[in-house]
Nucleic acid binder design. Structure first.
Length: 569
RNA sequence: CGGGGCGUAGCGCAGCUUGGUAGCGCACCUGCCUUGGGAGCAGGGGGUCGGAGGUUCAAAUCCUCUCGCCCCGACCA
């Protein structure tokens, strides 16, 4: 392609509504433009990268034995009603009606559609296993779309669904997809980590997320410094830390203390001059229709997902002020477990090992000190209710946990029979009996993967693409296109590179050198060739890699060979 | 959904307090000049001031409503 003929509207200034590097740079590099909140148009340069990511995904999925299909974006309500997700998926599911007032939704994911198709077409164990995938536009009406392609409402996703006759087969495919995903993200040139994850609204028995490591990531991940354990913080197991009994202080008598207006952990610990690990927070939750209390140490954070799973609740929200007052008979801020009647109390493991701690008094402006359990209150049980913190023991070995941030670019689930059961997807085994198909599903955010690559590769001048997903592998700058020699040499290199199968962009614009350098850096093409009068006098052009500052002189006749080597490397 | 902020030319913004000719920089077009890190000069095009209603002789500016967008929150008692 020629720069002069391609729509690459680069911006000198950063649009004011962009926050993270990938969003700013995709806008500045002329790759995307916003149409509405969380909805974007891909411009030629942006689409090239999207297509390259898709190509890698497609090649690896095909290699893994999956077959490509394409399902509709608009899905009839009945399918979603059949799986019960019409009611459970919530507001993220964009519902629409056609002219006959029939209900549809825009597909946010396609378990229902694929299961419906497969149950109609697959009857025998002989046809299993099968893995079907598509690369398609999804719509999820996110509460708060942000960060450009990172969390859009409309986005391109590769989603795959596998169907199996046996658990072993399903698990073998899960492993196959795990390995395939590793290959995909390696080929994209990304630093990533596969972590154990919660299954969330998709459901299923176990799952892994593929996280691109980046400080701007929305997810926190915990990983062990000595073994290969890694998990999303939502899921990471906080190991109960047991102290030998002799280390526990002798129990002292409970005392009421006045703590006027002190509600938060900081206020109470500051007022009483104690550290946060001597206090126990009491959080009142509404789990479906019941009220429960959860206890965690003052310096720990409750993990609602863990609590929700323990309670087996469909919906879990923090109770509002009225409910808190009703449950504790005190204004919010003074809740505590002592004398709390009529509601179940769930405590974090860490609370079990505390002695003489501080809790709310269930009375305005009162806290209790030197509280102990089980002496002063009973709990339903001790569970893992909190988020892990740096330095926690690894649940698998004696190592310590570290925390990092990541961008979720892929997610694989072993679904089991959740959908096949709801939608009666069955097959006949060799004995002629009906069985539920066992399913797996596997997703990759295509646009998010591209955005994640930018989060991982950028500097003050712009994007630094990994070669495999760069919109072009090489950019040739004709520094002063009006100089016939320069023009001729640049054209010749351009044509030779095309013949050699290289993806090359020729900057043939009548621009000053400075502008060309700035644009080339901004759009992040990995390999740059500067063709200028200065070098040509000696028969040289310059070879420069985006990721390093060095410039090397290369003889005109050698440049194609050099570039081929660099691309292959 | 709660709180805050912003909508003025393609982009970034000023003007609004105190109503009275719609401006600046970049980008764009023409010409000259220039050509190795976003040059310079001259000329030029482009705006229902998000939308609707109201107050007023007069509204980008004041009032009401509305739409859109951004940020924070919607767990830490």
């Amino acid at each position: 392609m020629r720069f002069s003929q391609m729509l690459i509207p680069t911006l000198k200034e950063t649009p004011s509504d962009a926050e993270v590097a990938s969003h700013k740079l995709m806008l500045r590099a002329g790759m995307i433009r916003k149409v509405a909140a969380g909805i974007y148009t891909y411009l030629p340069l942006g689409l090239r990268t999207i297509k390259k990511v898709e190509k890698i995904v497609r090649e690896e999925m095909n290699r893994a034995g999956a077959q490509e299909v394409l399902m509709p974006v608009v899905v009839p309500a009945e399918l979603w009603q059949e799986s019960k997700r019409w009611d459970f998926y919530g507001k993220e599911l964009l519902r629409i009606k056609d002219r006959h007032e029939r209900e549809f939704c825009l597909g946010p994911t396609h378990e229902e559609v694929i299961t419906d198709m497969v149950r109609g077409e697959v009857r025998s164990y002989r046809q299993l296993p099968i893995n079907l995938y598509q690369i398609q536009t999804k719509f999820r009406d996110e509460i708060r779309p942000r960060f450009g392609l990172m969390r859009g409402r409309e986005f391109i996703m590769k989603d795959a669904y596998s169907f199996h006759a046996t658990e072993e087969s399903a698990e073998a495919e899960y492993k196959n997809m795990y390995d395939t995903y590793c290959r995909i993200f390696e080929r994209c040139g990304l630093k990533f980590r596969a972590v154990e994850a919660d299954t969330g609204s998709i459901g299923g028995s176990f799952s892994h997320e593929f996280m691109v490591l980046a400080e701007s990531g929305e997810d926190a991940i915990a990983s062990c410094d000595s073994c290969n354990y890694a998990a999303n913080v939502e899921k990471a197991v906080a190991r109960s830390q047991r102290y030998p009994p002799e280390e526990r202080e002798a129990e002292k008598p409970v005392q009421r203390v006045e703590t006027p207006g002190r509600k938060s952990v900081e206020e109470v610990t500051g007022f009483l001059k104690i550290s946060a690990d001597k206090l126990v927070k009491t959080l009142i939750f509404k789990a479906d229709d019941r009220i429960v209390a959860a206890l965690v140490r003052g310096d720990h954070e409750i993990n609602e997902i863990k609590l929700k799973n323990i309670l087996n609740a469909k919906e879990l929200v923090l109770a509002d002020q009225t409910a808190v007052e009703k449950a504790t008979k005190a204004p919010s801020g003074f809740a505590g477990p002592v004398g709390l009647s009529g509601i179940e109390i769930y405590a974090d493991h860490a609370v079990e090992h505390m002695a003489n701690f501080v809790v709310g008094g269930n009375e305005k402006d009162i806290h209790l000190i030197n509280v102990n359990t089980p002496r002063d209150f009973a709990v339903k049980g001790f569970y893992d209710l909190r988020n892990v913190v740096v330095g926690d023991h690894c649940p698998r070995c004696d190592g310590k946990l570290e925390l990092h941030r990541g961008i979720e670019v892929g997610h694989i689930f072993k679904l089991g029979t959740k959908y096949s059961e709801a939608m009666k997807a069955t097959f006949l085994d060799e004995k002629g009996t009906d069985n539920l198909m066992i399913m797996g599903c596997y997703g990759i955010g295509i646009g998010r993967t591209a955005a994640a690559a930018i989060e991982q590769g950028n500097d003050a001048n712009g994007i630094i693409w990994p070669i495999p997903i760069a919109p072009f592998q090489v950019i040739v700058l004709a520094l002063n296109i009006k100089d016939e020699q320069v023009k001729e040499a640049a054209e010749k290199i351009y044509k030779s590179l095309i013949e050699a199968g290289i993806e090359v962009l020729l900057d043939d614009r009548d621009e000053r050198a400075g502008s060309m350098f700035k644009d080339a850096d901004l759009i992040g093409i990995p390999i740059r060739i500067n063709v200028g009068a200065k070098g040509l006098k000696e028969g040289n052009v310059e070879l420069k890699f985006r990721k390093s500052p060095e410039v090397s002189l290369v003889k005109l006749d050698n440049i194609v060979k050099k570039v081929m080597e660099a691309v292959a490397a």
